[in-house]
Design a protein around this nucleic acid. Structure first.
Length: 511
RNA sequence: GGCGGCGUAGCUCAGCUGGUUAGAGCAGCGGAAUCAUAAUCCGCGGGUCGUCGGUUCGAGUCCGACCGCCGCUACCA
């Protein structure tokens, strides 16, 4: 059973989570659940990034201590992820002692093995007293910080600890080119490769005047720069530096947003190489949720809160919509209209209705007992199912969750067509055709069972509900069913129940 | 400024190395059926393939220019 260690980006503790956060967590959860389905030994990590400067400001505004603030934020985020059905195995916060210990250990390990890679130097830049941080590039407009245009930027120099990032350009580039470190989708890999080809500068990895952080080893005046600190969470959660960390490390997949590829595909691998630790095997950089074609802004955030989107059609439906419509590769749009359209057409009318009509017919014509198939499953539906299963697996293996969702619906659609072609409701009126009816009902039951399993990564609650209606114990627990079991799944003899309406449709006005 | 991507039916998108009347899903319209959440199934209409020019017997598909979106990156005021 191969281990599969995957992570999401840890979130800044500076505000409520929104749909963009949700897409990343749900997408990673979908991948995690799929790998469990494959039989992998999955370890799924999520968490919080709690050392940013904005935390101090947010805490001050609320009149609480930074620790109280991050505790509150962590509870808020975790509650949302629970509602969305996230199945993470661990939850790390960068204010935890296990993390500070790991950060210290990593820095000391670099200092021990590659002493030349850590050095002190003057950092010189424009400092904004409003933000309490250095400003560069696009953050400066007309000589002022964009956040505080009325304040003067102060030329400041400060002595910092630096990491010799430039020394790792070739090594990182080679790993990405050879595929030892897979950066996906391809467009992100190309961006990172071009960035590396352009060359790297050494980076400052400590800060003065930042009390809310991890003390820099051997220097009581400075704390570890928040990004350097944050990246290490993936390693802290493995138990590093305890030897047991090697059970999980290296990470098999870091799921991140497309905006932070530089940190994960360049700086992070370089840090690990400096410590003589293996870099992660893969990074997946997803796109962003847009609101009617525009970036998620505060306005949009106000227009659609995460809680509202969950309440609208339920957590499963929101997961499905994000993964199916928005996707995990390109940017995608969230609108209520599109949400309604997917929900009605695919979840209620195609998937929900198929389950409903199939189980109702088994209940009405065979007393709820799934018949054995006298034709041994040689049907058009069976052929369609083989194709869908294969396409589902190859899509999901490549993290193309949109493809997985599409195949789920495609299989349900094929089953609906099968019902029309075979017309079991007509066969039921002809006692001499009982064997044909048995075959049709067995095929439908098998399809519903397969759909429940394939739906798990997308619709975990619904999948369980459907599985439960397919018969009481001694049926197999859903969590123990593997993808390969689906080829031969046979539900003959099960006593099924009529399911509740899986995806109720709100009555339209003038209904 | 540098690098890159995109622009195809009302909407979301497929269209690999150029070749018969440009495709899918959704929405819309018509029909069939009645097991089912008035759900399902079948059929239909609809596109100057961003614009202009070029290469070619022939271009959505190659080349150039332009227009419009977007991404990454840059110690540019």
């Amino acid at each position: 059973m191969p281990k599969f260690y995957l992570t999401t980006a840890i979130d800044y503790s500076n505000g409520e989570p929104h749909l963009g956060h949700a897409l990343e967590k749900v997408g990673a959860d979908c991948i995690a659940r799929y790998h469990r389905l494959r039989g992998d030994d999955v370890h799924f990590l999520m968490g919080m990034d709690e050392h940013s400067q904005s935390v101090i400001q947010a805490a001050a505004r609320s009149g609480v201590t930074p620790q109280a603030w991050v505790d509150r934020m962590a509870d808020t985020f975790a509650a949302y992820w629970r509602r969305l059905g996230c199945s993470h195995d661990d939850w790390i916060r960068t204010t935890e002692p296990r993390h500070a210990r790991s950060v210290t250990a990593l820095l000391e390990r670099i200092r021990q093995r590659r002493p030349q890679d850590l050095f002190e130097a003057e950092y010189e830049g424009l400092y904004c007293t409003g933000c309490e941080e250095f400003k560069t590039g696009a953050q400066i407009v007309n000589g002022h910080c964009v956040e505080h245009p009325t304040l003067e930027l102060i030329p400041t120099r400060e002595r910092n600890h630096f990491f010799r990032l430039s020394a790792y350009r070739d090594a990182v580039l080679e790993r990405i080119r050879s595929g030892a470190l897979r950066v996906e989708p391809e467009i992100r890999r190309n961006e990172v490769v071009r960035l590396l080809e352009a060359g790297l500068q050494d980076i400052s990895i400590s800060r003065q005047r930042q009390p809310w952080g991890i003390p820099f080893p051997g220097d009581t005046q400075q704390t570890v720069y928040v990004w350097f600190d944050a990246l290490i969470n993936y390693l802290s959660a493995t138990g590093f530096p305890d030897p047991r960390f090697e059970r999980l490390w290296p990470a098999d997949l870091h799921v991140i947003g497309k905006g932070i590829t530089r940190f994960h595909c360049v700086i992070w691998p370089a840090m690990l190489l400096a410590a003589e630790l293996p870099p992660p095997r893969a990074v997946w950089a997803h796109g962003y949720v847009q609101w009617s074609g525009a970036k998620m802004s505060k306005t949009a955030g106000a227009a659609v809160s995460l809680g509202e989107a969950i309440d609208y059609h339920g957590a499963d439906a929101l997961r499905y919509f994000l993964l199916r419509e928005v996707g995990f590769e390109n940017d995608g749009d969230f609108t209520w209209e599109r949400f309604d359209a997917r929900y009605t057409s695919e979840l209620a009318d195609t998937l929900g209705n198929l389950v409903s009509r199939s189980l109702t017919m088994i209940a009405n014509y065979r007393g709820g007992v799934v018949p054995r198939d006298p034709c041994n499953y040689d049907t058009p539906l069976e052929r369609a199912a083989r194709g869908a299963l294969a396409a589902y697996a190859s899509g999901m293996d490549a993290n193309r969750v949109q493809e997985g969702a599409a195949q789920l619906v495609a299989l349900a659609g094929a089953a609906n067509r099968y019902v029309e072609e075979t017309a079991p409701y007509k066969l039921a009126k002809q006692p001499e055709r009982a064997a044909e009816l048995d075959s049709v009902l067995a095929n439908l039951a098998r399809t519903v069972g397969r759909l429940a399993v394939l739906a798990q990564p997308f619709l975990p609650t619904t999948a369980q509900t459907v599985w439960d209606t397919l018969g009481p114990p001694p049926s197999q627990p859903l969590a123990s069913v593997r993808l390969l079991d689906l080829n031969t799944l046979d539900l003959a003899g099960r006593q099924v129940r009529k399911p509740p309406i899986l995806f109720p449709k709100p009555r339209l006005p003038q209904g």
